[in-house]
């Protein structure tokens, strides 16, 4: 199944045998995953399939039980999270996590400055996501939807080579989801790994899809291939969209 989509570009991210066990329960089992540079990849699967654990192990928030993670042909399995981020990975949290006591601008600046960005980067990113007029508000005063957008803005400000988004459209209004899709499609050159439940977002933004089920890869392919895959329909689409 893993050979469904042959990757043309060199992989920016590879995992081999990545496994996580929580007190005897396996959240991820021997995941071999390849993400070519520049691709927009969606990671889908039913609740509890191990998606968040998997990306948590990629960026170092969750220590892997075993297995390796290669980023840009470098073994980062043993690096702490902040060192992985510095190599050019950005990560947005599934549960909104911004600096609520600081201004919107300061939030983005903290992301940009660490990654070597300037005030100009901050201003540009704020304009791009449409938060310029709220730049001086405390982030905690933003609506939920705007806080999610701020999360994404912080990721953008890091100018990442790999951008991991954990359910970015969760809880967003229809109009905000549409803006998000446009934002993602406009990010040419950045490799994106997107955990997503919203199928319209997946089908319209992702070039390639990986389906995770019971902690292992069930299928990989283009949106059309995944849509047509009977195993995926049985395990996921059939139940989710019913």
């Amino acid at each position: 199944m893993a050979a469904l989509g042959a990757a043309g570009a060199p992989a920016i991210l590879q995992t081999r045998g990545l496994t996580k066990t929580y007190a005897g329960v396996q959240a991820n089992v021997d995941v071999d995953f390849d993400l070519p540079t520049g691709q927009i990849r969606a990671l889908i699967g039913p609740n509890g399939a191990g998606k968040s654990t998997f990306v948590g192990m990629l960026c170092g928030r969750i220590p892997a039980t075993r297995g390796t993670v290669m980023f840009d042909n470098k073994d980062i399995s043993r690096l702490p999270a902040h060192r992985r981020i510095r190599l050019g990975i950005a990560y947005t949290f599934q549960i909104t996590s911004v600096f609520t006591g600081l201004s919107v601008r300061e939030n983005v600046a903290l992301a940009a400055h660490r990654a070597g960005g300037t005030e100009a980067t901050v201003t540009e990113v704020l304009a791009r996501v449409g938060l310029s007029d709220r730049a001086d508000q405390p982030a905690g005063d933003l609506s939920y939807g705007h806080q999610r957008i701020l999360e994404i803005a912080m990721g953008l400000a890091q100018k990442p080579r790999l951008f991991i988004l954990d359910e970015p459209t969760q809880g967003l209004a229809e109009s905000e989801v549409a803006e998000f899709k446009a934002l993602i499609r406009g990010l040419s050159g950045t490799t994106i790994l997107l955990i997503e439940h919203n199928m319209s977002v997946v089908m319209e933004t992702a070039q390639f899809i990986t389906v995770l089920n019971h902690g292992a890869i069930l299928a990989e392919g283009t949106p059309e291939q995944i849509r047509a895959n009977p195993h995926v329909q049985a395990a996921y689409l059939g139940t989710e969209d019913a």
Partner: peptide, 24 residues
């Protein structure tokens, strides 16, 4: 200074600061 801003970031939200690349 960037050092002080980073300290405030840690106070406000330590996991987020880590995931922005700060060596908390």
């Amino acid at each position: 200074a960037p050092f002080g801003r980073a300290l405030i970031a840690i106070r406000e939200n330590e996991p987020r600061a880590t995931m922005l690349g700060y060596d908390v």
